[in-house]
């Protein structure tokens, strides 16, 4: 399926594909440190494993950044 991940067009062959699968596919090492937006709505973290991605979906990974001092 054709996806837009972090603003870039990506072709992914896996189907079905959950948010958790996608995070693994994109080598996100610490999924606990990322917030995921799927077509403009933030996905509840406990549902990452059961939320399925479909063709043409737009997904953004937004990382927690805690520093400042």
């Amino acid at each position: 399926m054709e996806l837009k991940v972090n603003g870039e067009a990506k072709s992914v062959s896996a189907d079905p594909l959950s948010i958790s699968d996608l995070l693994k596919l994109f080598k996100v090492e610490m999924p606990d440190m990322v917030s995921v937006q799927l077509n403009g709505t933030f996905v509840d973290r406990p549902t990452f494993g059961v939320t399925l991605i479909k063709d043409k979906d737009e997904i953004d990974f937004l990382y927690y950044m805690g520093g400042g001092q």
């Binding site: 937004l62 990382y63 927690y64 950044m65 805690g66 520093g67 400042g68």
Partner: peptide, 9 residues
């Protein structure tokens, strides 16, 4: 604002 390593948001 948040920063870590070479990144910021």
């Amino acid at each position: 604002g948040g920063i870590v390593r070479f990144t910021g948001q």
